[in-house]
Design a protein around this nucleic acid. Structure first.
Length: 427
RNA sequence: GUGGGCGUGGCUCAGUUGGUUGGAGCACCGGGUUGUGGCCCCGGAGGUCGUGGGUUCGAGUCCCAUCGCUCACCCCA
């Protein structure tokens, strides 16, 4: 077993499952288009400082999950663990705020986090990441959730939308203190992890999975009671926006997010069908982040990401794998026919037919078998007799019906066109 | 980083209290059909039993270590 294998947590996506990925992307791109979003593509490698400054130096992602290494000249580089920071970096770097009042961007691609892999969690995983930069109003928050919801609905995936507000630098400190005071008084009832969280990041105690902790937390003060007036109004308007679009949601005051930059609205799309993982998508508002990355003062922003592996996992639950097929297989018998087939196949490809042949010139039985394996819709059989009479045999692989197909014109393109019409369903 | 489960051909798995040349099904290749796939029949190829060490006359079976996969914790999409 000295063979090379893919790295732990890195997966190949094979041809028999690729259709799920393509459908996810096709649907998402279509919905993004309807919501007037444009694609942006950014590098997978960025200066380490970008993520440390945006995600937060004390977060688990930055502390222990990043693929970070030194470039030949000594610069510290990092494989992006999420998509928001690079997109915002690009926004600032190219002064996109001068192109339009609001930037509506999406990007699709791989992210990297050095975690222990498990169901729905890989070291290289894929996200569709969406950002709206330059719009502060609550309707944008609602619109984004509606878009995420629409993507999942179109894919036939049911996930519940949960929303919360984390407040802002004006009101969160007061809540934080109230929460810590409360939790300190119950410290003895909390699990080991939560005692640690209490010191490091108290908000995280709120979404502990431990039953005892949940019970304790049930009586904790609610962030929503501590929101300042603007934050409270914002949150109410977000909910009104969702109601206006009839997007179902539920408030979850225990939902917190792992990245430091979130403030005000946060949301998750959750499901119970992914093992220990529950979020298919999640996001929130990050007013202040753009400024901290060198952008214009007070630039508001909000975004979310959908985990593509998780989505595909949900789709695959109701669908078997499928091997892609081709339109036509050409079985050429003998050197002369093989040669003819070779010319014909190129002509067919030139006019849009997906076709294959056995370049190694096997026996007919073998070639028919290959045609079956390739899931060819039709097979064209050409031997010396067919070459002589100018009539090849066209076999419909599903029905087994065979009929003659002319190969007597001296213009190969004319033949290809006629053949294409023959095998095109409904033509 | 921590814990549980599992490692036998490409895949899914048998393999009796350790006992001579390790099996099956599916997949693959060939034949039965001088030139017709999917069904059936026949045959073939393919395995250092994850790896290393130990116990033993003898280890796929027992012991230790190690690696890998997987699920969960942590964290997150």
């Amino acid at each position: 077993m000295a063979q090379t294998k893919a790295l732990k947590g890195f997966k190949d996506i094979l041809p028999n499952e690729i259709h799920l990925w393509q459908r996810v992307e096709d649907v998402a791109r279509d919905i993004f288009r309807r919501f007037a979003f444009f694609e942006i593509r950014v590098p997978v490698l960025e200066p380490t400082a970008l993520f440390v400054r945006s995600i937060g130096a004390d977060t688990d992602i930055v502390e222990k999950e990043m693929y970070t290494f030194n470039d030949k000249n000594g610069d510290s580089l990092t494989m992006r663990p999420e998509g928001t920071a690079p997109v915002l970096r690009a926004y600032v770097e190219h002064a996109l705020h001068l192109k339009s009042k609001v930037a509506r961007l999406y990007t699709i691609g791989p992210m990297f986090r050095h975690e222990r892999p498990q169901k729905g969690r890989l070291r290289q995983f894929h996200q569709m990441s969406v950002e709206v930069i330059g719009a502060a109003g609550p309707l944008v928050d609602a619109e984004l959730m509606a878009m995420a919801h629409m993507i999942l609905a179109r894919l036939g995936v049911s996930a519940a939308l949960e929303i919360n507000s984390l407040g802002c630098p004006d009101c969160r400190p007061a809540y934080n203190k109230a929460l810590v005071d409360f939790l300190e008084s119950r410290r003895d009832n909390l699990c080991d992890d939560c005692r640690r969280r209490l010191d490091k990041n108290p908000l995280r105690v709120l979404d502990c999975k431990n039953k005892k902790c949940r019970a304790e937390v049930e009586e904790s003060p609610a962030i929503t009671d501590f929101l300042c007036l603007p934050c409270g109004d914002h949150f109410a308007a977000v909910r009104a926006g969702l109601d206006a679009m009839a997007v179902p949601y539920r408030k979850n005051r225990f939902m917190v997010r792992g990245l430091d930059y979130y403030r005000r609205t946060t949301f998750e799309l959750v499901t119970d069908q992914l093992g220990a993982q529950s979020a298919v998508g999640a996001g929130g508002r990050y007013d202040g982040l753009i400024e901290s990355l060198g952008g214009a003062k007070n630039t508001p922003g909000i975004g979310f990401a959908i985990g593509m592996e998780r989505l595909v996992l949900l789709l695959a639950a109701n669908e078997p794998g499928q091997t892609p097929g081709i339109d036509l297989f050409i079985a050429g018998l003998g050197a002369a026919a093989g040669n003819y087939a070779f010319r014909l196949i190129h002509a067919l490809r030139g006019i849009g037919i997906s076709c294959a042949m056995d370049m190694d010139n096997g026996g007919l039985k073998s070639q028919m078998k290959q045609a079956g394996k390739a899931k060819a819709g039709h097979t064209l059989i050409i031997g010396d007799d067919e070459l002589a009479t100018g009539q090849a045999v066209l076999r419909n692989m599903a029905s087994g019906e065979q009929r003659p197909a002319a190969i007597d014109d001296n213009d190969i393109n004319t033949i290809a066109t006629a053949l294409a019409a023959e095998i095109q369903p409904g033509a």
